[in-house]
Simulated assay, not measured.
Amino acid sequence: MNNLISDLEIDLININILDIDEELLIKLKEKDKITKDKFYFYLLDRIIEAENSKDTEKISYSYYLMSYYLFLIYTPFLYEELSYKYAYRAYTLSEDFKYKEWMLFFTTIEKKLLESKLALKIANDILNDDPMHQIANMVILMN
């Protein structure tokens, strides 16, 4: 764990999960597999901790981070499906704009993971807040 902490230059033991962002995860992209493995298990632990706390904001954000990490950084076998499952869990717990946007990201991949009906609902929700949102407008046009 100390190597992971020094690699990321933050105190992973004491940091609030809500203070971990995508930029921190991107730093792991070029790290070795052992470091990525360690962070994967760190995130799993933080998910369990969030679930035990019953704090919906922390739970949904933890799921979002795991989804992002699996899809863009770690990319294990079946990473798209795994990432989608975590993204969906985040979205169902909180309709935060960020989670809606991330869900629509799954319409841009070859595998059809996000059902059209849900994609349209999310796209319309996003367009209510941001009428110029490119992916949301693309989803509407495609369906």
Score class of each variant (00 low, 15 high):
S83Y: 00
I126M: 06
N52Q: 13
I140K: 12
I17L: 13
V139R: 01
I15E: 07
H133L: 10
S116N: 14
I17K: 11
M138E: 06
N128Y: 09
A123F: 06
I15S: 04
K121T: 03
Y91W: 04
L43A: 03
Y99W: 02
K98S: 04
N137F: 13
Y68E: 06
M132H: 14
K85S: 09
K29I: 12
K112F: 05
S62P: 09
L43W: 09
A87R: 04
E81C: 04
Y79I: 09
Y42V: 00
F41A: 07
T108R: 11
K36Q: 15
N3Q: 13
L12W: 00
N14S: 03
S6N: 15
F105I: 13
K54Y: 08
D96G: 03
E115C: 12
T107N: 02
E95A: 07
L18R: 04
K33W: 01
S60A: 15
D11G: 09
E22K: 12
Y40F: 15
P76E: 09
E80H: 08
I15G: 02
K117S: 14
I48N: 07
L24A: 06
H133N: 15
A119H: 06
E115W: 08
N3Y: 10
W102C: 02
K100T: 02
Y63S: 01
L82R: 05
N16A: 06
I126R: 05
E9D: 13
L113N: 00
L12A: 00
I122D: 07
D19K: 15
F39E: 04
L24C: 13
Y40C: 02
E81I: 10
K112R: 13
R89D: 00
E30I: 06
L18T: 00
I48F: 07
M103P: 12
P76A: 03
I126T: 05
K29V: 13
I59E: 00
A50G: 13
I140V: 14
L114K: 08
S53H: 08
V139K: 00
Q134S: 13
T35R: 04
I59N: 00
I10V: 14
E30M: 08
F41D: 08
E23K: 04
H133Y: 14
I48Y: 07
L118N: 05
D32F: 01
D45K: 13
D129V: 08
M66W: 00
D7C: 14
S116K: 15
Y86T: 02
D125F: 11
I15H: 07
Y64F: 09
M103A: 07
T107C: 12
S6C: 09
I48K: 11
I135D: 03
I140G: 04
L82M: 05
A90Q: 11
D55H: 10
I73C: 09
D125C: 04
Y86I: 00
L24R: 10
I140Q: 08
Y79T: 11
K58A: 11
Y42P: 05
P131R: 10
K85F: 01
D125M: 13
T108G: 08
K121I: 01
E101G: 09
I126C: 02
N16D: 15
E81F: 07
D96Q: 02
K85E: 12
D125S: 12
D96W: 01
D45V: 07
L72C: 02
L118S: 05
L104H: 12
L82N: 02
E57M: 14
I122A: 00
